[in-house]
Amino acid sequence: MRTTALPAAEATRPRTVVVGALLATGAVFMAFAALVAVYVQQRQLARATGQEWFPEGSVELGPAGMMMMTLVLSMVTVQWAVQAARDEDRPHGFIALGVTLMFGAAVINQFWFVYQDTAFAIDGGRAELLFYAVTGSFIAMLICGMAMLAVTTIRSLMGPFGRDLAHGVQAAGAYWHMCVLCYFLVWYVIFITK
């Protein structure tokens, strides 16, 4: 029996883009976790010495909770975009991408409101400085995530379809989930435990 017509089995190994993105995502998470660690440590130090961290009532929980809910919803829409790219489903892919980007923009808008509401000055002291360092870093990370997601999804949906391009969306999706995890830290550490 001739077997020459059969294709060779495909090599099974982890997906390169996803592995690279997960490593990079881990590095970004380490940087953010280190920032949060400095914040917690300094707050602990201030409390131990009887100093006030934020003035009473200056940081409201409402907007922060809305941001948390928005980002949790965005996790669903990101996975929607990933699945659409996998299925080569252009309409759903664009809708999912658009909704996710809108959620991201909504969070940035909400942060702008929080900045106006708290009216902190960056040179106001340790608490204010670290508040801006942590939240500002998060916003930068979120903008990077939005850009990554937009580029990879559009490349996947506008160009020739294929497994490799869907991997790009998966990689961006993994980064997005990490961003939401980072916001969970912000939400709990800065806004809930104040």
Partner: peptide
């Protein structure tokens, strides 16, 4: 390790 130094740089 190195991302922790980036956090230091931000602060």
């Amino acid at each position: 390790t190195l991302p922790v130094a980036i956090a230091n740089l931000v602060v």
